[in-house]
Design a binder for these strands. Structure first.
Lengths: 294, 294
DNA sequence: CGATAGCCATTCCTACAAGTTATCAAAATA
DNA sequence: TATTTTGATAACTTGTAGGAATGGCTATCG
């Protein structure tokens, strides 16, 4: 028979009181019960842990060693139980989140901040990847939730629309925009590289097409922030997510395209079989709750 | 109710097998018993640790966390039990040993070596102190055993003669020693400082007195080895423990004094109330066993 | 010195908790 | 639809941990 934690708990309390009666009271058991618990423990370690003297109980050297080890053991057990309890409630563990260009500027940072506040014990791993990349990563189990461009139609994935995003024209101050998007038909375009996000790039081209022209792309960069700065510098114009206004680059105006195709939905995606995973569930329900946008 | 190690043991085995029937068999219990154990555990952490699918049991994220923590916890518990078991048998713990000038050269190193071989888990702390210092340290509980000059007469201490030691004359090669110790009546003496060991110093003077003279002390040093080297260098002569021959300083002869007072007994001393301390008992019984001397 | 008090061990009994056997229920094959 | 696999449930049994009462040892006190 191996040692049980309850025995160690009793032993540690006894080691603190050095008095069977008082320790028993502290443990809410009768004194004979404690005596027998300690005897069991002493049987298991094949020797005495305490010296029972007249009105004086003291620890043997072995008892002192076990007391010290038992203390840390009990603390560790406490922590293990606590962590498991947090984990089953989705309050601890590891959540791997995929996100793309647009979602970063949009609601993601705020959702993340809120999630961190609610579940400080959860480790969050962020992975920057395109929507198709996220879908593949979800199916392969490399990430747990993704911020994807909707719609996603996969039998094993579930999605939840989180917000509607739209492309707006980013033009330097002073540039004419009388006729809406088509005003930019002859301008130079600075865009995020197609290799960074195929879908975003394609969507930009698509939107221009809807306005009746093909954008003349003169520069491709990797960051949305860079795009805006190049627009400010007069290198060209661009179409960016409306949420880019959060970046507040001066002298750059963000203007409605007036084109229906400019809009798209961003949503959360996760595995259907993770519906029961409380960590994922917690994240979803937090993202679902109303939040300030822009 | 708090978690018990037996529950964690069952859970870990189940997490390894991922099959209730097989895990139950491995644990030598029936399958329903295991099912209930796991249910208890899941109650305690307030949520599921396993997903029971058709022909497929798998761990929840919380289950994985608990499995990992449980494993280290069980290992630690194992170690704690093992250490306690060793400790009650006097095979682990801390033994503080006092020793003086003479005992170091005498049997101590060998006893120590043997003790280390038999009880490798026992930490040994050595403290260099005189016989009266050791007696006081024993009574104050600062050391557990001491190598002392006998006799010791204290009601709360027990002693065991270990070996008989005697002072021998240390003279440089070529010096006359025809008439025994009294040959040295007019020589210069190099001795160990009285502040290092009062009893040793006094014993040296006592021995000379028995030979009919008072030693003329020209130098006091702190180490026996230094004494021998000064003798070799011709600074003077001395009386040293016979066991000093182990140091084998060349050109120094160690010669019998022919004086009964030169002899004394070295013994082990320990607290009477430590008779039940298996660590001390083990050391004593090892010291008691026959050993090679010189 | 016998009486007393303090304190742990022992004994005996009860009750609950944990185990066993037998059976059920769900899900995927064949 | 019958069968197989596998975990959950039900009903019953038993081991054992805990409670109350008692015993026994030891130092102190009147």
């Amino acid at each position: 028979m191996a040692i049980e934690l309850s025995e160690l708990r009793s032993f540690v309390v006894l080691a603190d009181h050095l008095h069977f009666g008082q320790a028993a009271e502290a443990l809410h058991v009768s004194q004979p019960a404690l005596t027998k618990q300690i005897q069991r423990l002493e049987d298991k370690v094949t020797g005495p842990l305490l010296i029972r003297g007249y009105r004086r109980v003291s620890l043997t050297p072995a008892g002192e060693i076990l007391r010290d080890r038992a203390r840390t053991l009990l603390r560790d057990a406490e922590i293990a139980e606590q962590m498991a309890r947090l984990a089953v409630n989705g309050k601890a563990g590891l959540l791997r989140i995929g996100f793309g260009i647009a979602s970063l500027a949009a609601g993601l940072p705020e959702i993340l901040t809120r999630f961190r506040q609610h579940f400080p014990e959860v480790q969050v791993a962020m992975r920057d990847m395109s929507t198709p990349g996220q879908i593949e990563a979800l199916e392969r189990g490399d990430i747990d939730v993704g911020f994807v461009r909707l719609p996603v139609e996969r039998p094993d994935l579930v999605t939840l629309p989180v917000l509607e995003e739209m492309l707006v024209a980013a033009v330097p101050r002073g540039m004419s925009y009388r006729k809406g998007l088509s005003s930019l038909r002859n301008e130079s375009f600075v865009v995020i590289s197609r290799s960074v996000s195929t879908s975003f790039f394609d969507h930009l081209v698509q939107t221009c097409r809807a306005a009746g022209f093909s954008p003349r792309i003169v520069q491709e960069v990797n960051e949305l922030f860079t795009v805006l700065n190049l627009v400010q510098a007069g290198v060209g114009v661009s179409l960016v997510p409306r949420s880019a206004n959060l970046m507040r680059v001066p002298h750059v105006r963000l203007l409605d395209t007036g084109v229906a195709e400019a809009k798209w939905k961003i949503g959360l995606a996760w595995r259907k079989r993770d519906e029961s995973d409380s960590l994922v569930r917690n994240f979803i329900s937090l993202a679902r709750r109303p939040r300030s946008v822009y």
